[in-house]
Design a protein around this nucleic acid. Sequence first.
RNA 1: GCCCCCUUCGUCUAUCGGUUAGGACACCAGAUUUUCAAUCUGGUGAGAGGAGUUCGACUCUCCUAGGGGGCGCCA
Length: 487
Amino acid sequence: MKIRVRFAPSPTGHLHIGGLRTALFNYLYARKEGGQFILRIEDTDEERSTQASTDAIFQGMLWAGLNWDEGPFPDGSVKGEYPPYFQAARWEQGVYQKYIDGLLAEGKAYKCYCTPEELGDMRAKAQAEHRPPRYEGRCRHLTQEQVKRFEAEGRKPVVRFKMPAEGETVFNDLIRGEVRFANKDLYDLVIRKTSGIPTYNFAVVVDDYLMQISHVIRGDDHISNTPAQLRIYDALGWRPPVMAHLSMIHGPDGTKLSKRHGDTSVIEYKKQGYLPQALINYLALLGWSTPDSQQIFAAGELERKFDIKGCQKSPAVFDPVKLLWMNGEYLRAMDETQLYAAARPFIDDAGVARGADAEFLRKIIMLEREKYKTLKEIPDLISFFFTDKVQFDHEAVNKVLKQEGAKKALEAVIAKYSVLADFSELPLEAAARAAAKENGLKAGQVFHPVRVAVSGRTNGPTLFKMLEYMGRDKVLARMQAALELCS
RNA sequence: GCCCCCUUCGUCUAUCGGUUAGGACACCAGAUUUUCAAUCUGGUGAGAGGAGUUCGACUCUCCUAGGGGGCGCCA
């Protein structure tokens, strides 16, 4: 069997973490099995679908590196045999209507003239009477006269699919095993809206079949839609794809991940300085694992090791702290060139290091690399190298420069450094230690004031390398200026 | 209310009838160190509850409880 999977988002907002995870599992399954990964835009919601959302989905997918084999692309091009991969446009081409007509002709579907208000009333009444709030089939057996009257009133019908009243619908989910639904719990769902546009539950069936999707991998919030869709496959005489329902991602409070939990758009993670590889690695581990619980995956390794058998049935809580750790791991694993390239936009954006020499900037970035958890925090961590005047942290000044002996230490170091022949790491350290010894100070009593004097902070890179990179002029000038802050 | 799904450390998970229940994040302690971080070592910490099946259950079955999802002319 040819493996064909799809990610089918509706363009009604940004691509979020949950959507990206679903896309990722489809992508990985396709890559692992040597199949095709298809992107299809389900824009049958005329009111909420927007072009901006479609663009955002493209952008998010591309940034995350989830390249699709078939579907529409941001430049307007389309790959694959089933263009345009937008359901609304496919509807305009008449893709769905013939199947609806067929069901109507065979009596497997019927027109329903109930208005939204009537439906609302029925639901409310059912709720009040403790009955399930679903459509009871009022228009299932309308007489010719009734239809005529409704038509005369100008009512526009929807088309509903007739669900069987008895029996069971059973399917074998790749992740959950056998799942059974009693048909009596199904209801006659709308497959064509008054606008003529098919509803989601109908359009997915038609498109998945037409596009020869072999496996439907989606969130388990779709489990309850599955029996209805299976009934439609059956009515159309089609063989359904294999179903695989992924567990949901939850927020810390145990409910489905939503905006308030940080299910922010994928692009927001980019802006916050996350690496796409790190996000992807982290997401792959939400609801999936290898038999040995491997944590970090090298490039291409997920594609090779992904196995749907390793998918978890239970929901996973999104843990931003672990994501942060993982991002740090990826940052530390980058080489100088990669890190520089990744960090540069954030540095430019922050307006730090304007006009700095690229080689120099690269060295400075590497100096503090083991501290980075996100790219976004890099500018702040290195900014003091480039400012004209040191921005002193008040706490640092009070705790260090105001201490007894600080002034003496700085003066001694200034004296040494002014005449130091080789202004590089080792001699700098030796000179500082000598200054300490000669003045009866402990090494720390000298090192700390020097650090604060030149950087304004108590935390920073390894001291003498930092001084070396900063250069004699700047170091001396800064220490000189800091003397005024000592008491 | 009805239907469906789920249940191993705080979190992500391994285990596929016999293990001192393993790993990772986080946390704690120690080592290293000029700071922070990184790194290394060690530690705390789990099978929801109850019945079965079995020589033996985290693992299989049932019940209970808890959690989640769905019940639209949204997808």
